[in-house]
Computed example of a mutant assay.
Amino acid sequence: MELAALQAQQRLLVRQKITLMVNRYVVHVEEADGSEGPMVAFVEQKRLAFKEQVTLYTDESRGQVLAGFKARKVIDLGSGYDVVDDAGQPIGYFKKDFRASLLRSTWHLQQPGLPTITGRERNFAVSLVRRFIDELSWLPYHFDFGVGAHLAFSVERKWSIRDRYTVTINDPRLDRRLVIAMAIALDALQSR
């Protein structure tokens, strides 16, 4: 899918593929009936890497890079992640707010030319249960990202054996590659 067509999308589906040594995700457009439409990204994250680096490809052939994100520091609970395009040019940045995340997971996302967007778990009760009862980590959770009362986008984990998310984008100015990177990070990096 061309970048302009991707940028026009308002709903995406993210699904994790089960593998042993690599986290893999596929991202599709969500059709009006809720089904998977065309694939827009294929994502791989190596597990147990000293410095997180995740690459987003245009499809499973891994022939063309769509974007990627990489940790700024090797080991740091408050490390940020730079998001770059296929040519390595910056398109944004996100960071977990470690202190605020002790009770309710909170992230900050920046895209040049836009105010900082803050995302946090929608349901405070679910966030507390997930922290204190590890066996319930499969509970669906929802993140809302916005500035004040303006909702820029949301990521909702669905009930499923495998991790599945619906991403709804309300702000047309947001770079979809940055939104996809943040959605993947919520799954791949959330428990760290």
Rank of each mutant, 00 (worst) to 15 (best):
E30A: 09
L128Q: 12
D144S: 03
R162S: 15
Y25K: 08
S191V: 04
E156P: 02
Y25T: 11
R120Y: 02
V179D: 08
R104E: 10
F50V: 11
K73M: 13
T116W: 02
D97P: 08
P90E: 05
D171W: 09
Q16G: 02
V26D: 13
A188W: 03
W107C: 00
T116S: 06
M21H: 07
I161N: 05
F145Y: 15
Q7A: 15
D85I: 08
I117E: 04
V129A: 01
R177T: 01
E44P: 06
K51G: 05
I169K: 06
R72H: 13
R173Y: 09
R177Y: 09
G146W: 00
A188P: 06
A87D: 14
V129D: 04
V74Q: 02
D171N: 00
D187N: 08
S61D: 15
A181R: 04
E52H: 13
F98E: 00
Y141I: 03
M1A: 13
A4H: 00
A125G: 11
Q10N: 07
R130I: 02
K17N: 07
E156S: 05
S35H: 01
V129G: 02
L186W: 01
M182T: 14
H150Q: 15
A49Y: 09
R131M: 01
A87E: 14
S137D: 15
G80E: 07
A4N: 13
A8Y: 00
K158L: 10
R157C: 00
S154V: 00
Q45L: 03
Y141R: 03
F98T: 14
D187S: 00
E44M: 10
L48D: 12
H28W: 14
G113F: 05
K95L: 08
R177H: 04
W138L: 02
Y81G: 07
Y57G: 06
H150E: 13
N170A: 15
N123C: 10
A185E: 01
D187C: 02
L114V: 08
E31H: 06
K96W: 08
V84E: 10
A100P: 11
L139D: 10
